[in-house]
């Protein structure tokens, strides 16, 4: 019995001793950060929130028919074009000039660059009115800025968009002077301006596939000229494109090429060369902006444009091709 007691007491003592030792502190944990991984710097859920915020601002401006609040979420060409559209819509008294900017997206192209500015792109689903989907570009110029809609284009009917990296991985932006492409984005927009202006006669015409925009001007110009010539007034139609100071935005495609958006301005000049002939605004929108200006033999229409082009990689046999454009009448004058 004694030995039993002693033993059990020893056990109790041991238990007590271990218990007291347990009071001693554990080691302090050290932060174990995950290694940085290559991923988009904007998650899809963040992108969705951004889209909702931008969309909210756009909708509000539509309702109020005022552009004042747009600057919070629109910038660059998009801000300028939307202001123009709202003005035009107000002049016409309807919302026909307003591009449908419903931000329901079928695809997002998220940035992978950690530096600023960062750009993301998105393609809307086909609108109910069967117009073509819209490609939008969003830009965060600095870290303390918000993402803002920077530009958009309506995609050409039947156009095939290039492939992009997985949205979660993100796509790298392409510098305006990137040399890995068939031509740098900067030169692409400059050359294309030439091509739009003089079409086939441009020395760059071979670099670009023919496209709907060029075809549009050929047809439209011909129609204007025909209408004037019907009166034997010696019709003439000219279009002039030039790029704006806005930098181009380009993003890498899966094949190593780039999708590029660039802002331009354009001018259509319709002239009736014969003496005594007078012409008026050629469209309802132009009429709305025309106001009470007197008719002369010249109509000049100024537009704000955005073009989106696919620039293939350097070693590709493909041509640079237009994938979408926006062409918004901004002002009309009688010469």
């Amino acid at each position: 019995m004694k030995s039993t007691t002693t033993r059990s007491m020893a056990v109790v003592a041991a238990v007590l001793a271990t218990g007291l030792l347990a009071g001693c502190a554990e080691e302090l944990p050290v932060p174990k950060p995950e290694a940085p991984v290559a991923a988009a710097v904007v998650t899809q859920s963040q992108e969705r929130k951004i889209l909702d915020k931008v969309s909210g601002v756009v909708d509000e401006a539509n309702k109020a028919s005022k552009a004042d609040s747009l600057a919070a979420r629109l910038s660059g060409p998009a801000l300028s074009i939307r202001e123009t559209q709202l003005k035009l819509a107000a002049a016409r008294g309807d919302d026909e000039p307003l591009t449908n900017l419903t931000m329901q997206m079928q695809q997002v192209i998220l940035p992978s660059d950690q530096e600023w500015p960062r750009s993301s792109y998105a393609i809307t689903v086909q609108p109910k009115d069967l117009t073509t989907p819209v490609l939008m570009a969003f830009n965060q110029s600095t870290a303390r800025e918000q993402y803002k809609l920077w530009a958009w284009v309506r995609l050409l009917p039947g156009v095939t968009m290039p492939q992009f990296a997985e949205a979660d991985l993100g796509s790298a932006s392409v510098a305006p002077n990137d040399e890995s492409l068939k031509m740098t984005p900067d030169s692409a927009v400059e050359q294309y301006a030439s091509v739009l202006t003089v079409d086939e006669r441009s020395k760059y015409a071979d670099n670009f596939a023919d496209d709907d925009l060029r075809a549009f001007f050929r047809e439209y110009g011909q129609k204007q000229v025909d209408a004037i010539n019907k009166e034997e007034c010696g019709g003439e139609f000219k279009v002039g494109y030039e790029r704006t100071k806005d930098p181009v935005k380009a993003v890498r495609t899966a094949d190593g090429g780039a999708l590029m958006l660039a802002a331009m301005i354009s001018t259509e000049t319709i002239t009736a060369k014969e003496e005594g002939c007078e012409i008026g605004p050629p469209s309802e929108s132009a009429q709305a902006l025309w106001g009470d200006a007197g008719n002369t033999n010249v109509v000049q229409l100024n537009y704000k444009d955005v073009v989106a082009m696919y620039i293939p990689p350097k070693d590709s046999d493909d041509q640079v091709s237009l994938v979408g454009y926006e062409h918004v009448l901004s002002s009309v004058s009688n010469g």
Partner: peptide, 8 residues
Amino acid sequence: EPGVLGLV
């Protein structure tokens, strides 16, 4: 710093 929030 990264990892501090999940330290403990």
